[in-house]
Design a protein around this nucleic acid. Structure first.
Lengths: 225, 225
DNA sequence: ACCTGAACACCGTTCAAGT
DNA sequence: ACCTGAACACCGTTCAAGT
């Protein structure tokens, strides 16, 4: 009988899919998605890149898995709240998750295979509308309109440098300086007289649009049939 | 005096930035953004990849230039229409452009430098709100809410296989078959009793949400101050 | 069953050299 | 002024070989 093999991973847990996904998410959070390579991920896990293929079938599968894991971070709409409150809370949570993982939004388009976390999440959102008195057709409308807004907002928020904070303000000031007022009068006005005024933060725009959509959906539901 | 040099590009026009951008857009349209490499683009233009660096400073600059060129394809809001009609038309146009160039939406987040086409476009949209009686603060709200919806919708549309058409229906049927009704009752219901019914097309959801947002903005403007 | 080393067919970008 | 060839430091993925 041979002696037990020595641990080859130097005290670290054995590699598995969850650990691969978790580490990949951390790497993307830190360095952006363009820094996430199979080789770099292997290095981080103390393993050759090729070993990863025992746990994900290829890079696309890795990315799909990462996205599905993130859906698990989103707060599911609660059965205890009315539909509007429940859907509002989960929308705020979607945005928070996308702020924590800015690389994720762009990947969702190309995520070919929806995983169980994704399906579960969508099912609960749909159920919230249905139980809130929305017809099937109106549920489809609501789901599309709401998520278009929420994911679209997260996309804009990532692109714009209008967060509050000093570097953001400095950046916006540089932008303004490069903006000829004669050519772009309305952009110039908005920037100088509103966006760059103390107290403005693009982050605050989120709830305006969210409530606009939710109120619109409620009205549409009530005036149906 | 030496004789005139022979044409080295075999009768083709000399390389310039516009031709580089144009060809890059065509390549991305045909093969997706992941097929667009400096080497492949050079090949298409009958030139070594390294020659491209005489016309774009690097790949990021190339991508920024492509995005800015696309803004030129979007129909600007007309001064002859009332604000709602004008903004509605240009929103429909944004979506059409993103359908023609599905790779573009994902790139807009990371487009670091807004070019003149982009700025011009935004300026005109802002001007349309301002001249339509929106305050500066309400214009900021409107711009954010509307574009979040429009770009977000284009993003969803790209990801979903619910276009009308036979292959799309086949794909959706496969999805449905993999969806346990006990685990995902609401997804199952929506798919089987609505989305897969004849006549449904996800494309039609666009105008529902668009009008919801536009009506909401009008209401917000009217109830202001 | 899981991990590795070498190899293949790619990338973006630099730099010195050509015309 | 513009284009090229060679080189550098990377990619994702395969395959046969190791334990």
């Amino acid at each position: 009988m041979p002696a037990r093999k020595i641990q080859r991973t130097e005290g670290r847990t054995r590699l598995n899919r969850d650990r691969v996904l978790e580490t990949a998410i951390s790497l993307a959070d830190e360095g952006g998605i363009e820094k996430l390579s199979m080789r770099r991920l292997g290095e981080e896990l103390g393993v050759e890149a090729m070993s990863l293929y025992n746990h994900v079938s290829n890079k696309e599968d890795l990315l799909n898995g990462m996205i599905d894991a993130l859906y698990g971070e989103i707060e599911l709409p609660s059965h205890d709240d009315d539909w509007k409150t429940a859907v509002r809370k989960r929308s705020v949570s979607v945005r928070a998750v996308l702020l924590r993982h800015p690389w994720a939004n762009g990947l969702m388009d190309s995520a070919t295979q929806a995983g169980p976390g994704t399906l579960r999440h969508h099912d609960r959102v749909l159920g919230t509308f249905r139980n809130g008195g929305f017809s099937l057709a109106m549920t489809a409308h609501a789901f599309s309109a709401l998520d278009s807004y929420v994911y679209g907002y997260a996309k804009q928020e990532k692109a714009l440098p209008f967060d509050s904070g000093e570097e953001a303000a400095a950046m916006a000031n540089v932008m303004l300086a490069q903006l000829p007022p004669s050519e772009y009068p309305y952009l110039h006005e908005l920037m100088s007289k509103h966006v760059l005024q103390p107290g403005y933060s693009y982050a605050d725009e989120f709830t305006f649009g969210l409530d606009l959509v939710l109120d619109g959906l409620e009205r549409a539901r009530d005036s149906e049939g």
